[in-house]
């Protein structure tokens, strides 16, 4: 068995080298396919991360009436934290709100002078709500409006952000759907391309398969070199695609950072951190496809 396997390995390596032009084409197809899949992954990761960051920047502020006591504001905060849609609620005291207001308008002398005229702090405390999803804000605002605490609220910032929040929620959902469908379709196309390329490669060997069978080779002995060659094609295509992917990310990083500004992140670090999942599954799928394609294609010509 070991001798037979060693011979199959020798035959496959000889065939791989002696049909070098066919090998180059097959490996190139696997490489281009995998590299394209990686580009789609980059697109998916970038849009996903940027949208997540954007969503985290969105919040809704509840401006309490100045007469509302600190203890009551704490009660409202606890009430809000009880909502399943709410991730976090930040409390800004009346003093902090005043400080923030002054800082915002530090160049506006009229406003600052007006504030000095007042003997008491005219601002109420603020509660800044972060929801778990962009879709959650509308529900939170509706719940507050129908709650007994609504009378304590002077104003809400939701009205200003509603359009942006809706748009982000829409874009996120659409991107997710499009990304998912595109990935599935593209992965299927990629697998079909690899499958057919390997089938064409085996087709060119159909006479040889017949000859091997006629001189007494078993199906296993005849097809094993082609299966091993499938492993060669898959592995080499994968190594080239992965090896060139990181220099590509390094090349693309400055443009990416420039375009997305604060929302940009280190692409290479991201893919290194997820290397095992991303490239491990890619390697498994592509090698499995190559071997399966070889087995199916060779099987057809074994009937001699």
């Amino acid at each position: 068995m070991f001798v037979a396997f060693a011979r199959a390995l020798k035959f496959s390596w000889q065939d791989f080298l002696r049909n070098w032009w066919l090998s180059v084409i097959t490996v190139t197809v696997v490489f281009v396919t995998l590299f394209s899949v990686n580009l789609l992954l980059v697109w998916s990761v970038v849009t996903g991360t940027v949208l997540t960051n954007l969503r985290e920047k969105v919040d809704v502020s509840l401006y309490m009436k100045p007469t509302v006591k600190e203890l009551t504001v704490a009660e409202v905060r606890a009430y809000l934290l009880g909502f399943s849609e709410v991730k976090d609620v930040t409390y800004v005291s009346r003093d902090e709100a005043l400080e923030k207001f002054k800082k915002t308008h530090e160049k506006d002398d009229v406003i600052l002078e007006s504030l000095d005229e007042l003997t008491t702090n005219p601002l109420g405390a603020t509660l800044i709500i972060h929801a778990k999803s962009a879709e959650g804000y509308q529900k939170v605002v509706e719940k507050i409006a129908s709650s007994p605490y609504n009378e304590l609220i002077l104003d809400k910032s939701f009205g200003d952000h509603a359009t942006v929040i809706d748009r982000i929620a829409g874009v996120t959902q659409a991107t997710r759907k499009i990304g998912f469908v595109t990935s599935i379709v593209f992965a299927l196309i990629a697998l079909l391309i690899v499958f057919n390329t390997i089938r064409i490669t085996i087709y060119t060997h159909r006479d040889e398969i017949g000859i091997m069978k006629r001189v007494g080779a078993t199906n296993w002995f005849t097809s094993m070199p082609f299966l091993i060659e499938g492993v060669f094609y898959g592995t080499l295509g994968f190594l080239f695609a992965t090896g060139l992917f990181f220099p590509f990310l390094q090349f693309a990083q400055p443009s990416f950072s420039l375009f997305f500004g604060d929302y940009a992140f280190n692409l290479q670090q991201y893919f290194l951190a997820n290397a095992l999942v991303v490239f491990g599954s890619e390697f498994f799928v592509v090698v499995f496809t190559c071997v399966l394609s070889s087995a199916i294609a060779a099987r057809r010509y074994l009937r001699v």
């Binding site: 000859i211 091997m212 001189v215």
Partner: peptide, 24 residues
């Protein structure tokens, strides 16, 4: 003839023994 085109004369002949599992 039905010879394997990518194998040498020696390899073509040896192949018939290799499929039988003959020692090297």
């Amino acid at each position: 003839y039905k010879l394997l085109p990518k194998k040498t004369v020696y390899e073509n002949v040896a192949f018939a023994l290799e499929v039988c599992g003959a020692p090297s």
